[in-house]
Design a protein around this nucleic acid. Structure first.
Length: 494
RNA sequence: GGGGCGUUAGCUCAGUCGGUAGAGCAGCAGACUUUUAAUCUGCGGGUCGUAGGUUCGACUCCUACACGCCUCACCA
């Protein structure tokens, strides 16, 4: 972000030049720290004896976050990737010339390498007594104010590097995000799932109901779509004989931004041959309970002022049951299209007359129930018309063996027993193409090669997608997806 | 896209009834060898988001636009 040099930047650049004029490189790369600040604190914070501390020699590097100068003595707080520790430099110990001409030119925000021994101040704080020091990187822009830090949301997102420097809780959140993903990956691998990577650029967008981003390949002379889901590729791998696969990666959907939506977001999709949606419900409960226990220390934890309980088993309701339980619907009324319309009118929910009964039922659920599903809840048995890739129920052909998982009022996961009948799948694709021709921008394309794959025989399979960003939001007590993405999408600066 | 709120110094924020802007931190000069948001003295620092309008005069009132936040709609 271009900014006019202000007084402060000018002052810092003047110091930079003064350092250069002394023959000192303000950006050297020959200093190798040997100790982390957290290691020093862990090993010596409990030691009180001055003689014992004085024997400890350390070599550290980090950014100066606070500077307190007393003329002939300077205290500074140094921060590295692991933690923070105080250093103290005395004029009479490092030499008057160095102290005046170089150390005093160092400012908050600069990165410093230091060697020295440990001691404890009069107030008892563990501190490094500086014996030698080296300026490692001069910062010519000032850091935000030391007490309030950087609070402006826009600046925090646009200049995340500054946010990370001055707001330690942001750093901790992204470490948690990494931990969550690692726990999921390890859990899946231990269940025997193979991690795979499938294309991000698709000639035919598929696997979800969404509008894609379009891009162009010059050499091939063809348009490509950023993937909206990896689903159809992962199921090709099931056809190919990998019985358990998963992928944790980005999806891209050309939709609006909101507190819960970013155009690129991270999903885990996984497919297991010879499993059905009931098996996946059990897997999902156990997986998320495990992750919560590891990250939060318990299966129950606070999120957004509410207590969430991830302890299995979780409630399972059909769409109709959820409307009865959470919206006081009459069960019988929901069984007919006329009844659905009457119920919608009563609750002032708009239903497009062009929609079929299944779509109307789903709309009623989304309008009246979804936000109330705070505790983990599986909603099951979705209509066929809104589930073009899911296997129909053998008992009730109008519904599919599908569930969506809701937590905190948000959809967290979507799963079903996969449709592996190529003729049925082809018919479903044709229905989608008809909807697209009728103007539905989100309807699916017909994927000939996917039908061809199914014609080779895909074993009965259960498949699921879990929204990683939303899961991270729950586990980090966040309410905006931007807060769990290092670089969330924002409008370009005007 | 609709509605509401916001945008003032590098950062965090005040700014009354319309009379050309203040504080703390940060910066500069100085004092200080044990501070913990160090303290003390002095000094600088502003396109008041942008562009128009009303007015003798606009940070302040009006309009449009930009960006952000919240919310609704669409979606995961």
């Amino acid at each position: 972000m271009a900014q006019q040099d202000n007084q402060i930047i000018q002052s810092r650049k003047t110091k930079l030049e003064a350092i250069r004029e002394q023959g000192v490189n303000p950006y050297p790369n020959d200093f190798k720290p040997e100790n982390t600040l957290a290691w020093i604190r862990e090993n010596f914070d409990a030691i009180e004896e001055a003689e014992a501390l004085a024997k400890v020699s350390v070599k550290v590097a980090g950014r100066l976050m606070l500077l307190r100068n007393f003329g002939k003595l300077t205290f500074a707080q140094m921060r590295d990737a692991t933690g923070a520790l105080q250093i103290a430099a005395a004029r009479d110990e490092i030499g008057a010339d160095l102290y005046r001409n170089l150390f005093r030119k160092i400012e908050v925000g600069d990165i410093l390498g230091v060697t020295g021994h440990l001691f404890r101040t009069k107030k008892g704080e563990l501190t490094i007594r500086v014996e030698t020091f080296q300026l490692l990187t001069k910062a010519v822009r000032p850091l935000p104010e030391k007490f309030h830090g950087l609070e402006d949301r826009e600046m925090r997102y646009r200049q995340r590097y500054v946010d990370l420097i001055v707001n330690p809780e942001v750093r901790a959140l992204f470490q948690d995000r990494s931990t969550i993903i690692r726990l999921i990956r390890t859990y899946m691998e231990e269940l025997g799932f193979l991690e795979v990577e499938t294309p991000m650029m698709h000639p035919i967008p598929g696997g979800a109901v969404a509008r894609p981003f379009i891009t162009h390949h010059n050499a091939l002379g063809t348009d490509l779509y950023l993937r909206i889901a990896p689903e159809l590729y992962l199921k090709r791998l099931i056809v190919g004989g990998f019985d358990k696969v998963f992928e944790i990666n980005r999806n891209f959907r050309n939709e609006g931004l909101s507190v819960r939506h970013n155009p690129e977001f991270t999903m885990m999709e996984f497919y297991q041959a010879y499993a059905d949606y009931r098996d996946l419900m059990r897997l999902t409960e156990n997986l998320l309970f495990h992750v919560a226990q590891q990250v939060k220390g318990a299966g129950q934890f606070e999120w957004n002022g509410q207590k969430l309980d991830f302890t299995p088993p979780w409630e399972r309701l059909t769409l109709e049951e959820s409307l009865v339980k959470y919206a006081d619907a009459d069960a019988l009324q929901l069984t007919t299209e006329a009844g659905l319309e009457a119920f919608a009118k009563e609750r002032e929910v708009y239903l497009d007359p062009k929609w079929d009964a299944g779509k109307k039922l789903l709309e009623l659920f989304e309008a009246l129930v979804e936000k109330q599903l705070i505790q983990p809840t599986f909603i099951i048995d979705y209509p066929v018309s809104v589930s073009p890739l899911a296997r129909s129920s053998d008992d009730r052909p109008e519904i599919t063996e599908r569930f969506e998982l809701f937590i905190g009022g948000w959809e967290i996961a979507n799963a079903f027993s996969e449709l592996n009948d190529p003729e049925d799948q082809a018919a479903r694709f044709r229905a989608q193409v008809d909807a697209k021709d009728a103007g539905d921008l989100e309807a699916m394309h017909f994927d000939d090669d996917y039908i061809c794959a199914l014609e080779h025989g895909m074993p009965p399979t259960g498949g699921e997608g879990i929204g990683i960003d939303r899961l991270v939001m729950l586990l980090t007590d966040s309410t905006a997806i931007r807060d769990v993405l290092l670089f969330p999408q924002l409008k370009p600066r005007g």
